[in-house]
Design a protein around this nucleic acid. Sequence first.
RNA 1: GCCGCGUUGGUCAAUCGGCUAAGACGCCUCCCUUUCACGGAGGAAUGACGGGUUCGACUCCCGUACGUGGUACCA
Length: 507
Amino acid sequence: MTKEVRVRFAPSPTGGLHIGGVRTALFNFLYARKHGGKFILRIEDTDQTRFVPGAEEYIIETLKWCGIEPDEGVGYGGEYGPYRQSERKPMYRQYAERLVEAGYAYYAFDTSEEIEAMRNRLKADGNPSPQYNWAIREYMKNSLTLPADEVKARLAAGEPHVIRIKMPRKDEVKFHDLIRGWVSFQTAQVDDKVLLKADGMPTYHLAVVVDDYTMKISHVFRGEEWLPSAPVHVLLYKYLGWEAEMPEWAHLPLILKPDGNGKLSKRDGDRLGFPVFSLDWQTPNGELQSGFRERGFLPQALINFLVLLGWNPGVVQELFSLDELIQLFDIARVHHAGAKFDFEKCKWFNHQYVQRISNSVLADATLKTLAAKNISVDRAYLEHVCGLVKERCTFISDVWDNAFFFFTAPESYDLDAVKPKWTAAKSAFFTDLCNGLNAMQDWSHQSIESHFKELAAAQGIKVGELQMPFRIMLCGGKFGPPVFEIAATIGKSESISRIEKALTAFN
RNA sequence: GCCGCGUUGGUCAAUCGGCUAAGACGCCUCCCUUUCACGGAGGAAUGACGGGUUCGACUCCCGUACGUGGUACCA
């Protein structure tokens, strides 16, 4: 009997959620669903100095928008709460002290100035960032170097201190990663990480292990940036006697900048003109960082794009519903290497999804734009227009730009496109056309088109020569869906009035 | 610097020792359409490098190079 799958997404509420985080959440979600397990949201707010109000709500809203909501956790309840680390503060110290008693950790009283001084002293060309490790700790102020009674006295006096893990001087930590296979580290290479901070809060290292254990997490899927500290976590499971319950690990490849060097960061969006956040995010100092949602992306498209960034089911199909993803998802098929973010491809996915949504949904998205312009239209009319312009919309917010002439008559015309070839005969054609259209009973694009063509034939003018001017009369420029569809949609009187109005501008 | 993890077209990628190396995005050409788009048909473009192992290596091993992550009382 295999243990219940319980995975968690554990972001820290320090700002907007960037797409790397969304992808991590997605992989967790898919795995949980695929294996009938639970997807948990835990908030890692152990750094009070970095806490940003609103960030937590933002994270929840993002997951909701994406359709990958947690089963348990902050905002969702559950039996293993609280799910906010700040609210779990009292429980961490006992574990840290247990480690000290067992000799796996120690108290350290060094001030940050003293550590800084140590680093400066030891900094050399060959060692630009000295670590507080097995060698250095001998020379620092901690319970390993200080006499026991002095340690006791300092503790009793309430002197600020941290608890650090005592990394073995010579050992190898080996663990299995679902994506990368066996990974091993020499403990001499990793430093004595702080487990419990002077303010009594745990660091990430202690908190993840304690929380994952107490919340019965079965699998930990997190970004590759955690790989170097994984040996600390593995050792902690061992030292705490939880080795048998240690979750399985999977370190996800990073999402990289499109133009090389480095992982995608918040700044890249502004720099390269695309969103990196899921939703718009207003930073505490008033800066607005744009999100995929506000940019006109459909959540299904973002999900589809992100899931394929670092994972591939090995089939030719590439448009997948969430249900299909759940069926196909396999953590072992996740790539080892980081993937560059490709905004063009991301847009392509969105375009694909825009083609698949109903006109009604598109209409809803367009309503706001129309309202802002004080335009009120008939619902059926709007939906029909959406259907006509859909194929040229990449974003749901593109409707207006592709359809404005359905709501308002052109103010000006692309005269360069008509003037050079404009003739009195053509002018006469359009005057006659108005009369003809006016007399039509069946106002469908088919009958408009046949009447148009018959008239052109009767007057000996090539249809092609006439269609462009007609289009410009109705839309103002060289764009839009088929002309006769436009005429049919805006209606008889509107069509005629636009032709007449344009005629004065053309002549 | 040290440690870890990587490396198939410009990008996302398939391949699990038999490759004439899929597919998609983007790009280019043509067709459709006298707008734009959609659609269709083509095209250019890929195994970092050097050594092994093997009848055979993109696939396995070792080096080198390069990229990337970590090296905080941040996560």
